[in-house]
Simulated scan of single mutants.
Amino acid sequence: MAKAKKDIPKDDFEVFLKKVGNKIRKLRIAKGYSNYEHFAYDHDIARAQYGKYEQGKDDLRLGSLYKVLKSLDISFEEFFSDDF
């Protein structure tokens, strides 16, 4: 049975969010966007919220992660591959 978010140690979850944010940032830069605000604007993602995702400061809902990964042209499988 999967643990609810509240059962995951806060430090572990914060580390996970930072890893997700760092990977999103690297992929954005690889797509040629040096500025996260331009990327978010071009892909109809709230700029302030997207900035928090990259910083690992906010929890991404599954729908939000889907939209970000779709904008980066990457699948969930590729995103969470071995180098994650």
Rank of each mutant, 00 (worst) to 15 (best):
L17Q: 13
K10L: 11
D58F: 06
S71K: 08
F79L: 12
F76S: 14
L27H: 00
L62H: 13
H43L: 04
K18T: 07
K3H: 12
G63K: 04
F13R: 04
S81M: 02
Y50G: 08
F76L: 14
L62Y: 09
F16A: 10
A48L: 09
F16G: 02
K23G: 00
G51L: 08
K67T: 13
D44P: 07
K10T: 06
I24V: 12
Q55I: 00
E77M: 07
K26G: 04
I24S: 02
I74T: 13
S81T: 11
F84Q: 06
K10H: 08
A30T: 05
D11S: 02
I8D: 03
F39C: 07
Q49Y: 10
D59C: 13
Y36T: 01
G63F: 09
N22H: 02
F80N: 15
R47E: 00
A30K: 13
Y33M: 10
L17M: 15
D58Q: 12
G56W: 10
D59G: 03
L65R: 05
N22W: 08
Y53C: 00
I24F: 04
F80D: 09
A30W: 03
E14D: 12
D58G: 09
F39A: 12
Q49V: 08
V20S: 05
S71Y: 04
D82M: 09
Y50W: 10
L65C: 15
L27F: 08
D59F: 09
S81D: 13
I74A: 03
D59T: 14
L69R: 01
Y66G: 15
G63W: 00
L27W: 01
K57D: 09
L17R: 09
A30S: 11
L69V: 06
R25L: 14
S64R: 12
E78F: 06
D58L: 13
I74C: 06
R28A: 10
D11L: 05
V68A: 12
I29K: 11
Y53H: 12
K31A: 13
K6E: 14
R47G: 05
K23T: 03
L65W: 03
G21F: 08
V15H: 06
V68K: 01
G56D: 01
S81R: 07
R47C: 00
N22L: 08
I8V: 14
L69D: 03
K18A: 12
D82T: 08
A48S: 09
Y36I: 08
